[in-house]
Amino acid sequence: MSTYRSLSDPELVDLLKSGDQAAFTEIYDRYWSIMYAHAYKMIKNREEAKDLIQEIFSTLWLKSHLLTEDTNVSGYLYTAARNRVFNLMSQHKTRHDYFNAIARFATEESTATIEHLEERDLEAAVEREIQLLPPKMREIFELSRKQNLSHKEIAEQLNLSDQTVKKQVQNALKILKPRLRDAGTGIAILLFFR
């Protein structure tokens, strides 16, 4: 094992590509604490930082055969960590926080200003909630609201009864309205779900 400590990163990568577990262990030992500190600095959560770094090293081991001879292992690990941190941060941007920001803005500003809310942000908020609907309900709802198809047209297209389509749209509205209203986007609901 001590012989591996004296190897350079490119030498370790070369051994790792052939499935050398000792080379992987040396890379792990060499970079784990640095990568953990890097991830923790960005996400400020010890457990999530540990999990994130474990995933990166697991992926490195599982995909080691895909590495090239000129792979810079430290660059590879830093890039992987940065990308996973960004993904994690976007997941943490919870809907609740997003909707609270819109609600705060709406209560602080005049009705005239509310009209100037960026339409795409509003649409994105509504779209996120639509994507959480059950698949068949979402499909029917999108055909109704986005493609402006009648219940009859949707029923024919999906080989369903008119009544089933009507019920699915009603159920979707029952789910969506409270979620969006509770999150402070009541104005958006009136515009989108009239």
Rank of each mutant, 00 (worst) to 15 (best):
T25A: 03
H38A: 15
A49F: 07
Y31S: 03
M42R: 14
I27A: 01
Y31W: 12
M42S: 07
Q54F: 05
I43P: 01
W32R: 13
I34Y: 07
H38K: 14
E26D: 05
W32D: 06
K41A: 11
L16E: 04
V13A: 00
E47M: 09
A39I: 11
H38S: 08
A49W: 08
S18H: 03
E47L: 13
D14G: 09
M42H: 10
E48H: 02
K50P: 02
A23H: 05
I43M: 14
D14H: 10
Y28F: 08
Y28T: 12
A22I: 08
K44P: 01
I43D: 05
E55D: 14
R46D: 12
R46A: 15
Q21E: 15
Y31T: 07
R46Q: 15
A39M: 09
I43G: 02
A37H: 14
E48F: 00
A39K: 11
R46H: 13
Y28I: 07
H38M: 09
G19M: 10
A39Y: 07
M35F: 04
A49Y: 11
E26K: 07
A49M: 08
K41H: 14
M35L: 11
S33I: 09
D29W: 10
I34T: 12
L15F: 00
F24M: 06
K50V: 15
W32I: 10
A37K: 13
A37V: 15
L15S: 00
M42T: 04
A39F: 11
D51C: 01
T25Q: 10
K44G: 12
A23C: 09
I27N: 00
I43R: 02
L15E: 08
K17C: 01
F24G: 05
E47T: 13
N45Q: 06
I27D: 01
F24L: 02
E55L: 06
A49T: 14
I27C: 00
L16V: 05
G19S: 06
L15D: 02
F24I: 03
R30W: 01
I53R: 06
W32N: 11
D14V: 09
H38E: 14
Q54N: 09
K17P: 00
K17H: 06
F24K: 01
L52C: 07
D29V: 15
L15Q: 10
A22H: 12
A22G: 01
E55W: 11
L15G: 03
S18W: 03
I34G: 05
G19R: 12
G19H: 05
A37Q: 13
